[in-house]
Design a protein around this nucleic acid. Structure first.
Length: 714
DNA sequence: GTGCCTCGAGTTCC
DNA sequence: CTCGAGGCAC
């Protein structure tokens, strides 16, 4: 809590005596540090943003007047404090995607083969070339230039929305503020990084001044780029390599390599190890060269990126949901570390899944201290992979074992191997067959890898996880009511929140609460008022979010949206699912006719609405809400939007997969066989029975050129 | 039945 | 980020 008895907090700075100022700075350092800690570690801010900013400004004012009183632990030097609140958001016009991964040579050959198959290019044909360049281990940044002037710099964020760090980017030497002879609009993408030498010097400096040291150059680069005060960023030796582009008013060139060279000509640093390779063998050779040079580069890299060189091919290959088809990252083998497995704990998830977690003797792997690792499931501990094949040479994992840890994808800690020569436990780990939280039997269904608690709604662990899911970002996303808070209310005897509906009755119940919320530790009048306001705001909720929030098994964010769009409103959806029969009838058939919905999902959905206890809980929730209908989907402009299309015969201008992907991007549905539902048949040479059938049914038949003209593509 | 591709669920550390 | 499972095309 702010140290309000300290009068300096409210006194004008210019009347402070030196002693008062010294006290005030000490109190501010303490309060701001507490606030940061609460904000970051407890997920429960003790003071609101306005107060926080006020205190921080006050601190800066006092320091400005009494520079010699500035403390070693001054809050103005603190790294990462509430930075996320400080930057405005920037939407990426073209999404910043991640890349698929290759871990060995075979994956690289597969990549090449996939591309050749998609484009219908044989190995003998040398028109297919790739670029290969080191994958810098830093922070991605998108720089937008208008008429040659740097307008915005945005971090990747979630790929769609990033943070505006323009002021900080302007302080980076490698990033030109003005460029000549550039397209009117140019978005340059690349990586911000810190060299090993600069990283070591920075940490030494931080240590000397009592500042925070960084675990590795990437964290240092990320932390420096996200400083709210750009004068701090300007003192950090950040560098930048350009490797891609986003929106452009005119093309840079017609190959990847030439485009990057063009960026170099415009004044951007590009990586000197970028090379053209004409075969997977050449890619792997360059990878080996880069791996050999890795230690001497002077900056961190975590692999080599391969991209199809011809932009025309890149365009044809297009994108999968989260990655481009025309690029892949060939990763270096992960760093490994040995440590002791102290215990195996079992966590219970929202769906009742029992997940084993390894508690490890903390160990540094890849610059980060790891103390937990996922063990996935029963079979994984026993040494059996998902395909039934042995993993870790079939070795099982026991408590007390020395295990080798790595971070999969440089993030998730996993166990690579076990040293059985150091084993002390003579018996294999026995996976519990009862829920550790509610003691209900935990069973494993046929063909299922996970064991699940059968307690359902009565299992407290499941109930809490369901609530956490309910308030999560893609569901109700109530500000100030995160996982920590829901768990707090779940265990609170005077104001219990046991199911979603209880969240919306909190305010009324608080009126009669024994110790009113605003009088409790960690809450205040303002924060409670804000919380109730945030809850009220979410009483109006779109159908897709509501459906997702219910936490029905097999129904994730995108499937919930799919179902919501098909039914449009709560009343329609509720009526249908309440009266549906599993495996039979019109409603069942309709559910299965939705592209992307199968029997498993449909069963799960119907059961949730027809299980009396679960249904009662849903009804109590709905009584508190105003569920919004889904907006009518804006149909694509294309003349083929909503039409069902079938391709037959030989396609000469594109492959099957490509034709399908492109038709779908215009809103058409592609089917394999001609039926009464078919709108258009695209027939290439050699079309057989399908063409005949189409004519009988009166379906429009087009040749490939006519189809391309129709969808308006050259 | 096999082989993509996408989604869902669970996980770690900052 | 990864694995497993669901859904669908071949």
């Amino acid at each position: 809590m702010p140290n309000l008895q300290n009068t300096a907090y409210d006194s004008p700075v210019d009347v402070l005596t030196e002693d008062q100022a010294r006290d005030a700075l000490a109190a501010l350092a303490q309060d701001l540090s507490d606030a940061n800690k609460a904000y970051h570690t407890d997920d429960a801010p003790k003071i609101d943003d306005a107060t926080y900013d006020h205190l921080k400004r006050k601190n800066a004012e006092i320091e400005a007047r009494f520079p010699h009183l500035k403390r070693a632990d001054s809050p103005s030097d603190q790294v990462g404090a509430r930075a996320a609140d400080g930057f405005s958001k920037v939407a990426h016009e073209i999404k910043m995607l991640s890349l698929g991964n290759a871990f060995d040579d075979a994956d690289v050959f597969d990549f090449d083969e996939r591309i050749r198959k998609y484009l219908n290019i044989t190995t003998a044909d040398e028109t297919l070339a790739y670029t290969a360049e080191p994958k810098i281990d830093g922070v991605s940044l998108a720089l937008t230039y208008k008429n040659g002037a740097l307008i915005t710099a945005a971090t990747r964020g979630d790929g769609e929305i990033g943070e505006n760090v323009t002021a900080n980017a302007l302080t980076i030497q490698d990033i030109p503020q003005h460029i000549e002879n550039a397209p009117e609009l140019l978005e340059v993408r690349g990586e911000v990084y810190m060299s090993h030498a600069d990283f070591a010097a920075l940490n030494a400096r931080q240590e000397a001044t009592g500042g925070k040291t960084f675990a590795n150059p990437r964290n240092a680069a990320a932390g420096s780029l996200r400083q709210l005060d750009s004068t701090i960023t300007s003192e950090r030796p950040l560098r930048f390599f350009a490797y891609a582009w986003g929106v452009l008013s005119s093309p840079l060139a017609d190959t990847q390599f030439a485009s990057i060279e063009r960026l170099a000509a415009l004044g951007f640093a590009i990586n000197p190890l970028t090379k053209i390779c004409k075969s997977p063998e050449a890619l792997i050779a360059h990878y080996t060269d880069i791996a050999a040079a890795r230690a001497d580069l002077g900056y961190d890299i975590d692999g080599v990126v391969y991209k199809v060189d011809a932009l025309a091919y890149q365009r044809r290959l297009g994108f999968r949901s989260t990655t481009p088809r025309w690029a892949i990252a060939h990763k270096f083998p992960a760093e490994l570390a040995w440590t002791r497995l102290n215990a195996i704990d079992i966590q219970v998830g929202r769906t009742g899944a029992l997940s084993p977690v390894a508690r490890l003797q903390p160990v540094t792997v890849g610059g980060v201290v790891v103390s937990n690792a996922t063990l996935h499931n029963e079979d994984y501990i026993a040494g059996i992979g998902g395909d039934g094949q042995p993993i870790r040479d079939g070795q099982d994992i026991r408590c007390g074992d020395m295990v080798q840890v790595y971070r999969a994808g440089d993030v998730i800690p996993k166990i690579a191997a076990v040293d059985i020569s150091k084993r002390t436990q003579s018996k294999p780990y026995v996976f519990p067959d009862h829920c550790p939280e509610c003691a209900s039997p935990a069973i494993r269904e046929d063909g299922d890898a996970v064991r699940r608690c059968t307690g359902g709604l009565i299992c407290p662990a499941q109930a809490v996880e369901r609530l956490k899911h309910f308030v999560s970002r893609a569901a109700f996303d109530i500000e100030g009511l995160g996982a920590k808070q829901v768990a707090y209310f779940f265990d609170d005897d005077t104001l219990p929140v046991k199911e979603p509906a209880d969240i919306f009755t909190l305010k009324d119940r608080d009126e009669t609460g024994f110790t009113k919320l605003e009088n409790r530790d960690g809450f205040g009048k303002t924060s409670v008022k804000k919380l109730f306001q945030a809850i009220d705001e979410k009483r109006t909720i779109p159908l897709n979010r509501l459906l997702f929030s219910l936490g029905i098994r097999h129904l994730g964010e995108s499937s919930a949206a799919l179902i919501a769009r098909h039914y449009g409103g709560w009343a329609t959806l509720e009526r249908a699912l309440t009266t549906a029969t599993i495996g039979d009838g019109d409603i069942w058939d309709y559910l299965l006719s939705i592209d992307g919905v199968g029997a498993v999902m449909a069963t799960s959905l119907v059961m949730a609405f027809q299980n009396p206890a679960e249904r009662a809980s849903i009804d109590r929730l709905i009584a508190q809400l105003d569920v919004q209908d889904m907006p009518q989907v804006a149909l694509s402009q294309s003349p083929v939007a909503g039409k069902t299309v079938v391709f037959t015969g030989t396609l000469e201008k594109m492959t099957r997969a490509e034709a399908k992907a492109r038709a779908e991007s215009h809103g058409a549905k592609v089917s394999g066989s001609v039926s009464a539902k078919t709108d258009i048949l695209v027939a290439g040479p050699g079309a057989g029975s399908k063409a005949t059938k189409a004519e009988t049914l009166g379906v429009t038949v087009l040749d490939e050129d006519a189809w391309i003209a129709l969808i308006g593509e050259a």
